[in-house]
Design a protein around this nucleic acid. Structure first.
Length: 289
RNA sequence: GGGCAGAUACCCAAGUGGUCAACGGGGGCAGACUGUAAAUCUGCUGCUUCGGCUUCGUAGGUUCGAAUCCUGCUCUGCCCA
């Protein structure tokens, strides 16, 4: 979409530091695949929440939220504006609106639950937390397990806990700007971006982490499985590229679906020939400092 | 030139006389989303003024009725020359 470039330009015009709100840019050694700003750009404008964990470490929204909130406080302490930039919908939501505290994970409990099968679990959830059950689809194993996990470990329905949230918006005023473009144009940019990743050395980047025991989340980085399949000889380079393009287009689509429903967002419809500078000026107009 | 197989919706593919606008998968679009979130899940996907209308290579034919049977033609693949 052009978030990074626009953010860098915003930073040229007001004193601010960037807080990345991206579930994949947190990983070290994943720079090309996650489209991190370059080293030079990072040097010019301080960035937070980049390279905070290895691909082997477990990381999730709660961990992100804690670090991001700290970074924001720090930036405010320096009398600068925190510019939160990113497309990870849930991370953004948690940061803005909060997350309930008592909700850790229990891998062994999860395993036990998962082995029971969706049907049984959903029946159980309906008894234990009908509110949550009514919102979760019977086939959505992931969420059913999570809801039951929370219930088992806290003895409180997740639907009750979910009401206990308090995020940044409760403490600070914020302007939320959404960037969008015509679909055709967006997809074309995505296709080009993927091609660039390969010329920048994506294959080597993936090779470098190929031996690690990647966390569940890190395994999902677009580019990793596709390039690995290529390295194993299961896919041609062309096939790997096309797959990545498709997966990225879908990601972009889901991101749009996520953010579209948020009434607080001020949307900017970008045009193909808009420069990062122009976009940054439009953003600043919305922020209205 | 001869023989055989095939042509189905954006793509792949099932269907072999009525219950077929046509199974399934892919892709696309839309939606949900509070600890894997670049994840997970859901719905729709010929046109429609919702009464209908037009589809299964193409032109005819058989039949009350055809994507399904018959004939010609076109194209594709394989085999023989």
């Amino acid at each position: 979409m052009g978030k990074t470039g626009a953010a860098l330009q915003v930073a040229n015009q007001i004193p601010c530091e960037v807080v990345s709100c991206d579930s994949m840019q947190v990983y070290r050694k994943i720079s090309i695949a996650s489209s991190k700003p370059s080293a030079v750009e990072q040097k010019r404008v301080p960035h937070h929440l980049l390279d905070v964990v290895s691909v082997e470490e477990k990381f999730d929204v709660a961990a992100f939220n804690k670090l991001a909130a700290e970074a924001i406080e720090k930036i405010l302490g320096q009398k600068k504006y925190p510019l939160v930039v990113g497309g990870s919908g849930m991370y953004m939501q948690v940061l803005l609106d909060g997350i309930f505290e008592a909700g850790g994970q229990d891998p062994s409990l999860r395993k036990k639950l998962e082995s029971l099968g969706a049907e049984k679990l959903y029946g159980k959830l309906k008894q234990v937390d009908p509110d949550a059950a009514s919102k979760i689809h019977a086939n959505d194993l992931r969420r059913i397990v999570r809801a039951l996990e929370v219930y088992e470990t806290t003895k409180t329905p997740i639907s009750t806990l979910q009401k206990q949230r308090s995020g940044l918006l409760k403490k600070y005023p914020a302007v939320i700007v959404g960037l969008n473009r015509e679909r055709d144009e967006l997809y074309q940019r995505i296709n080009e971006r993927v091609e660039e990743m390969f010329t920048e050395g994506l294959v080597n980047e993936v090779k470098a982490i190929a031996g690690s025991q990647m966390s569940l989340t890190a395994q999902r980085i677009i580019g990793v499985s596709e390039v690995m399949a290529y390295l194993r000889g299961e896919k041609s380079l062309e096939e790997a590229k096309e797959l990545m393009k498709m997966n990225t287009r879908r990601l972009a689509k889901r991101q749009l679906t996520w953010f579209r429903k948020d009434q607080r967002i001020k949307w900017l419809m970008l045009k193909a020939d808009d420069t990062a500078k122009k976009i940054s000026q439009d953003i600043l107009k919305e922020i209205n400092l």
